[in-house]
Every structure is written in C-alpha cells, then in structure tokens.
C-alpha cells in the first residue's frame, strides 16, 4: 500500500481534533481553545503539537489522553504528541466560534477590546463586578451581575 493511501488528509485530522472537547469546559473543543499548534506527517508518523494553557493545568495529561484516544479511534497507529511552550498560549487564540460557545454556556469570554468592562453572559448588562480574581480553575475569575443578580464566571484574558 502506498503511503498516500494510508495517511488521512491533515484537514480531516483537524476536523477530528475539532470534535475533542476540552475536559474542563466541554462545550468548546481543543481546536477552539487554540492549544493545538500544529499537525503534520513525518513519514508515517502523525505529529500533533500541543501547548499547555497554564503550566500547572491539571487537565494537561487528560487533554493528551483525549487526543490520543480520538486519533487512535480514527485509526492513527503511529502518533507523537509534542509539547511546545513558546510562543506561550494566549486567550487570543480561542476561535471566534469558541468565544460564542463560551458565552452561550454562561462563561463571559475573554475579550480584550472591552477593556475593564465584562458583560454579563446571561443578560448582557455591563453593570457587573469582580468577586474573586480566581475561580474554579486558574483561567477563570468570579463575577456578579448587578442587573440580573446572577453570579458568573469569566474566562480571563491571558
């Protein structure tokens, strides 16, 4: 069998990865999150380059496991996961679709152009206040909406 027949197209691999949910915020995929930096074939080996969100993120090993499970499920036998630290991950790499999904899920997405203003993901009000710099995970802070009175989490700009 020729190599080209056994190797799925990279676009197809990206679409598979686009279906792997982030273990902590399952509404967005690992591709939406922007942590898959590269996918390439080195001969018959598929090399997937992943960058961590936070260096102490406990989901890192889970993420690698999920990537491996998904790709093996699609018949990838020879797989290498490469960790890349630089350039360091930034929330600017979260896709536009990912930002929308976060908002729909009730998490205020990281938006740099809003300055200090954090709109409530439920009612859209800008009358919100920070409760705590750290939320349930290092990437989120806790907020409260003074209009609809609901607490919410915000994905911090990082």
């Amino acid at each position: 069998m020729g190599e080209t027949e056994t190797r799925p197209e990279l676009d197809e691999v990206w679409s598979w990865l686009g279906q792997v949910p982030d273990p902590e915020i399952p509404v967005i995929s690992l591709v939406d999150l922007g942590i898959i930096r590269d996918v390439e074939w080195l001969d018959d080996r598929l090399v997937v380059t992943v960058t961590p969100t936070y260096s102490g993120c406990p989901a890192t090993s889970m993420i690698n496991f999920e990537i491996e499970k998904a790709l093996r499920g699609h018949g990838i036998a020879d797989l290498e996961l490469k960790r890349q630290l630089s350039p360091a991950w930034t929330t600017d790499w979260i896709s536009a679709e990912g930002l929308e999904k976060l908002r729909d899920y009730g998490i205020a997405p990281p938006l740099r152009n809003m300055g200090e203003q954090v709109p409530c993901p439920r009612c859209g009000s800008l009358d919100t206040e920070l409760i705590s710099q750290f939320g349930s995970t290092p990437c989120k802070s806790n907020w409260r909406c003074k209009a609809c009175l609901e607490p919410f989490e915000r994905f911090k700009c990082h």
Partner: peptide, 15 residues
C-alpha cells in the same frame, strides 16, 4: 476566595 486563589498559585508553581 483566598482558598481558591492560593491553591491556584500553588498549582502554577508546581507546574
């Protein structure tokens, strides 16, 4: 809030 914050800082440092 401090419990969560300090655990997160700890986690960063161990990472």
């Amino acid at each position: 809030e401090e419990d969560i914050a300090i655990a997160n800082v700890s986690l960063d440092l161990v990472g």
